[in-house]
Nucleic acid binder design. Structure first.
Length: 377
DNA sequence: AACAAGGGTTTAG
DNA sequence: TCATCTAAACCCTTGTT
């Protein structure tokens, strides 16, 4: 039984090892050398993690997320290896130029992150995958000619499949997944390749004896719901069958946060001053984007790298730096006051705002009409 | 039963 | 040993309507 899905054609574009490739563009002599882009925490000389590495560095085991120190060990026989700090402004500028180009291919466009986007080309292709492939080829050469960058591109009938197609051939890949080839494409892939299945979900599936996407698609749905919950159980089952109705559309931000690493771990609210730049940044963002937040929270990471958070929801939205700082300070004071148990030291601190509303009239829709129409009927 | 809030977990890039 | 930063989606519990 063919699967019922509206006929769409979606293109997924994924810029290859983006930050490192940006550096190769402005310093072409780096191309033959291992390039490691680092997020330095500022705690000690080399503390921090690897953000991205080019494929030369990857061939030595360097990858996203590993400590910079470990990357240096992996490359210590290679004096030509380079370690660079992130230059987000430069990457953003490059990304913006590319995204602007991509946007021109369809009204239906979605920027997923700095290096990823979806384009729904249904209306321009009318179900014709050859047309979609031409558009895809065009996109690849455009990015290559104008920015000297390679990308991996996937074309399929929905976002999840387009993404998986793009992931299946990297770097500089081009994969058109025709509807007739979806089943064989998915059948023997490990469940880990499914969008949304990370190491934890993979482990749970392993204990259910589910190893491949094909096996997942045949697994009893109510059992999946029992294990993963209603939303995820249902979603995994659908994704495994190649079904994904998620539309290609721009999302509006629902939260904004800033977090930093302290020079030394704190066991009291001694870092009040460090909050100022975070608060300024957040307040500024709210004002520029003409929004207000109703929930203000603090995020912190303990010395054992446990992530925690505390938050408070106000009755009315704000974009004021003073007010956000006051709320955040109160929450941190409360954390140290409560002492809790064991009282872990704090390594990283941050602030998050959410329950964002449009700037002007009211922070939220009225929860009930009874307030306005008091019972007279 | 439906919804809001608060806090934790997982994924992803 | 070492462990960044941001955002989203979901889960569970508790409390209110």
């Amino acid at each position: 039984m063919p699967i019922s899905e509206p006929q769409r054609i979606v293109v997924a574009v994924d810029l290859d090892y983006f930050f490192a490739q940006c550096e190769e563009v402005r310093h072409p002599e780096l191309k033959a050398r291992p390039v490691v882009i680092c997020v330095y925490s500022g705690r000690t000389e080399d503390s921090g993690v690897v953000s991205t590495a080019n494929y030369v560095a990857r061939s030595f085991g360097v990858k996203s997320g590993i400590p910079i120190v470990n990357a240096k060990k992996l490359l210590d026989k290679l004096p030509e290896a380079v370690f660079l700090p992130t230059d987000l402004e430069y990457y953003e500028t490059t990304s913006d130029k590319i995204m602007q180009e991509l946007r021109s291919h369809s009204k239906m466009f979605e920027r997923v992150s700095i290096d990823e986007a979806f384009i729904d080309v249904s209306s321009e292709c009318n179900g014709n995958y050859s047309r979609a492939a031409e558009i895809g080829k065009g996109i690849k050469s455009e990015i290559r000619n104008k920015q000297s960058l390679t990308c991996s591109l996937g074309i399929a009938r929905n976002k999840s499949l387009a993404k998986m197609a793009a992931d299946s051939k990297k770097p500089d890949g081009f994969v058109v997944l025709h509807p007739d080839h979806i089943e064989p494409f998915l059948k023997d892939l490990p469940v880990r390749k499914l969008i949304g299945v990370g190491s934890k979900m993979e482990a749970m599936m392993q204990s259910l004896r589910v190893r491949t996407i094909g096996e997942l698609s045949a697994f009893d749905e109510s059992k999946l719901i029992g294990v993963f919950g209603k939303n995820m159980g249902t979603r995994f089952k659908l994704l495994a069958r190649g079904i994904d109705h998620d539309p290609v559309e721009e999302k509006i931000a629902e939260q904004y946060s800033r977090i930093i690493t302290l020079k030394t771990d704190a066991d009291s609210f001694s870092f009040a001053k460090e909050l100022t730049p975070l608060v300024e940044d957040i307040s500024n963002w709210l004002k520029v984007s003409k929004r207000r937040c109703r929930t203000i929270g603090v995020i912190y990471v303990t010395s054992t790298i446990k992530l925690k958070n505390r938050s408070n929801t106000l009755s009315t939205g704000t974009d004021s730096a003073e007010e956000i700082l006051a709320q955040a300070s109160m929450l941190f004071e409360r954390i140290f006051a409560s002492e809790e148990k064991g009282s872990q030291k704090i390594r990283r601190i941050g602030i998050r705002v959410s329950k964002l509303s449009e700037d002007s009239p009211k922070p939220d829709a009225p929860s009930s009409l009874t307030h306005y129409f008091d019972k007279s009927s």
